[in-house]
Design a protein around this nucleic acid. Sequence first.
DNA 1: GCTTGTTACATGCACCTGCATTGAAACGCC
DNA 2: GGCGTTTCAATGCAGGTGCATGTAACAAGC
Lengths: 144, 144
Amino acid sequence: MTKPDEQTVAAWAMLLRAHRAAYEGVEAALKAAGMPPLAWYDALLELRKARAPLRLQALEARLLLPQYNISRIADRLADAGYAEKSVDPADGRGRMLAITRQGRGVLKRMWPVYAGAIEAQMGAHLTPAEAARLAALLARIAGA
Amino acid sequence: MTKPDEQTVAAWAMLLRAHRAAYEGVEAALKAAGMPPLAWYDALLELRKARAPLRLQALEARLLLPQYNISRIADRLADAGYAEKSVDPADGRGRMLAITRQGRGVLKRMWPVYAGAIEAQMGAHLTPAEAARLAALLARIAGA
DNA sequence: GCTTGTTACATGCACCTGCATTGAAACGCC
DNA sequence: GGCGTTTCAATGCAGGTGCATGTAACAAGC
């Protein structure tokens, strides 16, 4: 366990602050527009990209969320009518989740709000080149 | 509401991933060592830096957490014996919070674990110069 | 085809957060 | 100095998260 240098500690502190500021800004924008939270967007996006019902397991692998959270988000999406659950015909233990027409609709309505918030929180403070450098640096941490 | 460019969206996505990875790593390290969560560390650190009992308001301003969260963290620290609450003699509405001997102790024991986790999650993936650049970029977002 | 083990989700519980509201104390104003 | 207003914290409630465990379906070995 070596100790972090000063710059690393500063980067950590800023990671916390920047994330909180940006994240809260985005969530607040969605809420203000009467939209579901960010987590739903990610899940619905994966379901749409998949172009077919997805096993909860597969969703878990894509979203990198713990199993119990996937289970619950699937329930919430289904309750809201944005997704539909079914049993995997090939394996009675497995559950499939598919985006519904309404789910596609809400995704489409969410994007302008989401995009605007990303621009306000991030884009407004960075040039494209800076954003690219930031993304590259963060990727090193994320990829850990 | 202009739309974010591609680099900005990438930076946003990486901010989410990097934060989650690093944050969970740090919290897990603290928990594994039987230590309190990160939020307590921050609060206790402010109390120690203050070198005198702090008004909850002052703590709120420093930690940038909502009022009700400050109120509750103060209770938890007090319950755990790491801080002591009292009424502001100059204003009966105000509550003061002071770090206790035990609070100083836990702060001291937490730091090596915390520092090791920061190094593992961040330092191990960045040179000091990169960390400095990252911190500077993130500060722009945090300072919003 | 029954037992034993494993896999895929679901869920009870404890805790934490956000929001709205309450209660207490201080302040302003006449 | 009494009364409405403002400020400082606390808290009831609804909902989200993590952890540990429960339940159902499948698989393997015999």
